[in-house]
C-alpha cells in the first residue's frame, strides 16, 4: 500500500502542497468568489420579492379602484332608476288627467244627446196626440155623427195611449 510504504518520504510534500492548494481554494475561491456568487443570489431573491410586492400592491390598487368604480356605477344606476321611475309616474299622471278630461267631455256630450232625444220624443209624442185627437173627432163625427170637442177627444186619446 503506497499510502503507508511511501509515508515517510512523501508526507511532508503531501501536507505542504495540500495546504498550499487548499489554501488557494479557500482564500481565492471560498472567500473571494463564493460571497459574490451568493450576494448575486441574494440580490436576485430581493429583486423577486420586491417585484412580487409591487405586483401585489398594483393588484390591491386595481381591486380598490374596481370597488370604487362599482360603487359609483351602482350609485349611478340607482339614480338613473329613480329618474326613470319619476318620469314614468309623471307620464302616468298626465295621461290619467287627459283620460279624465276626455271622459268628462264624452259624458256631457252623451247627456246632451240624450236630452235632445228625450225632447224630440216628447214633441213627437205631442204631435201624435194632436193627430190622434183630430183623427178621433173625425172618426166619431163620421161614425156617430156626434160632434166631439177637441178637449174631450184629447183626453180620450191620452187615456188610450196611457193604457197602450
Amino acid at each position: 500500500m503506497p499510502q503507508i510504504d511511501q509515508l515517510l518520504e512523501t508526507w511532508s510534500s503531501q501536507v505542504f502542497w495540500l495546504l498550499v492548494f487548499f489554501g488557494i481554494t479557500f482564500f481565492l475561491i471560498g472567500r473571494g468568489m463564493v460571497p459574490k456568487v451568493m450576494s448575486t443570489v441574494a440580490l436576485r431573491d430581493k429583486q423577486i420579492a420586491d417585484d412580487l410586492a409591487a405586483a401585489q400592491g398594483a393588484r390591491d390598487a386595481a381591486d380598490d379602484q374596481e370597488e370604487a368604480w362599482r360603487e359609483r356605477e351602482n350609485e349611478n344606476r340607482a339614480k338613473a332608476q329613480g329618474l326613470i321611475g319619476e318620469a314614468k309616474a309623471k307620464a302616468a299622471a298626465a295621461s290619467e288627467k287627459k283620460l279624465t278630461a276626455a271622459q268628462k267631455r264624452l259624458d256631457t256630450k252623451l247627456a246632451k244627446a240624450e236630452a235632445a232625444i228625450e225632447e224630440a220624443r216628447t214633441t213627437a209624442m205631442g204631435e201624435i196626440e194632436d193627430v190622434a185627437a183630430e183623427a178621433t173627432q173625425d172618426i166619431v163625427s163620421r161614425l156617430a155623427g156626434a160632434k166631439v170637442d177637441k178637449r174631450t177627444a184629447r183626453t180620450a186619446v191620452k187615456k188610450v195611449l196611457a193604457n197602450g
Binding site: E9, T10, S12, S13, Q14, W17, L18, V20, F21
Partner: peptide, 13 residues
Amino acid sequence: FNIAFTNSALWMA
C-alpha cells in the same frame, strides 16, 4: 522537510 512537487500535488493543482 522534503516538499517535492509530486503527481499528487499536480492533481491538487
